[in-house]
Every structure is written in C-alpha cells, then in structure tokens.
C-alpha cells in the first residue's frame, strides 16, 4: 500500500514537471524547421551547474541559490516576421486557455508584453512572457521553483530583452 502511494506521488510529480514548459514546447515543435525563429532551450542540468559556482557576496549567494532551483528555460524569438501580431494574439489566447494567471502587462506604441504565472501552494512553478511588436515576437517560459524576489536579478543576468520589465515588480512591491 505504502509503495503504491509513493508510486502514485512520483507519477503525479513527474506529470507536473512534464507539464511545465509544455505550452512553449508545443511552439518549439511547430516552429522547429522555421529559420525565422530562434529557439533556445536551457535544461535543469545547466542550471544545476550554478550550484558549483563560487559566490563572492551574500547577494550573489542568494542569486545562485535562486538560479539553482530553476528547472528549465525555453525561448522562441523572432525579430523580423510579418505575422508578429497574429502570433502574439495566438500565444496570448493559448496562455489564457492553459489557465495561467496574469502577473503584469506592459503596453506601449512599439510593443505589447504580458507576464503570466502558474502557481502551486504559494510557489511559482512557471513564468511565461509573451511579447509582440511590429515585427517582433517572443515567447519565453522559465520553470522550476521561481522566487519573485530574485527574478529581476535573474532577468538581468540572462540579458533577455523584455525580461528586464520584471524589475517593475520589485518597484511596485516596495
């Protein structure tokens, strides 16, 4: 009986882990052969290497600890596509359908951007960013155990255009 419960928990746990990043993974498959889109995938193995880095300050230690809890990052980006508006609309639609909770949106004349999260028991398991400009489209998924306090620092370190907007979350929480 005990073994059965453990097996059940493991199956549910692995299913939850597989579900993370699934939406972006579908876009990866659909756009695999489309050279207009750059696809980037960073696995948990890569993030685990951060645990081996030497941290100088307390802030660096905290940052590396936050990064080591990440399980993956997937980015799909295009700088010059004619259908960026429809791609943005489709992605936002898919995000809403998949039950993500909106965290923040940024709109200006050049670009629209939306951040959404999936949360479980107070822990953010996935952060999604969808950005759409005149010819630009970005879909990003960061998954694992995400600490909002450190997310803007992670965003700065990753140098992903648009992700720096997350620093506004820090400003609004202060």
């Amino acid at each position: 009986m005990k073994k059965g419960i453990i097996a059940f928990v493991l199956i549910i746990g692995s299913m939850a882990a597989m579900a993370q990043g699934k939406l972006v993974a579908n876009y990866f498959d659909d756009l695999a052969d489309n050279e207009a889109y750059t696809k980037v995938s960073v696995s948990s193995k890569m993030f685990s290497l951060f645990t081996e880095l030497e941290a100088g300050s307390e802030a660096e230690k905290e940052f590396l600890k936050a990064v080591s809890k990440l399980k993956g990052l997937k980015i799909i980006a295009a700088d010059s596509i004619p259908n960026s508006a429809s791609m943005y609309k489709k992605a936002i639609n898919d995000v809403n359908k998949a039950g993500y909770e909106e965290l923040m949106s940024v709109q200006d004349a050049e670009e629209n951007m939306k951040f959404s999260i999936k949360e479980k028991n107070g822990v953010i398991e996935e952060l999604l960013m969808v950005a759409g400009g005149k010819k630009r489209f970005v879909l990003l998924s960061l998954y694992g155990e995400i600490d909002l306090k450190n997310i803007s620092k992670i965003a700065q370190a990753m140098k992903v255009e648009g992700l720096q907007n997350l620093s506004k979350l820090d400003e609004s929480s202060n």
Binding site: Y37, K45, M46, A78
Partner: peptide
C-alpha cells in the same frame, strides 16, 4: 548524454550535451 543547452534557428546553432 543529457541536454544542457540547445539553441537553433536564425544565425544561432548551439548544442551542449553532457
């Protein structure tokens, strides 16, 4: 081997597996 980083499309082609 397991995937560490994969990036492809456009001008980018990177794979690191270990």
């Amino acid at each position: 081997f397991e995937e560490y980083i994969m990036a492809f499309g456009g001008d980018i082609n990177i794979a690191l597996i270990g």
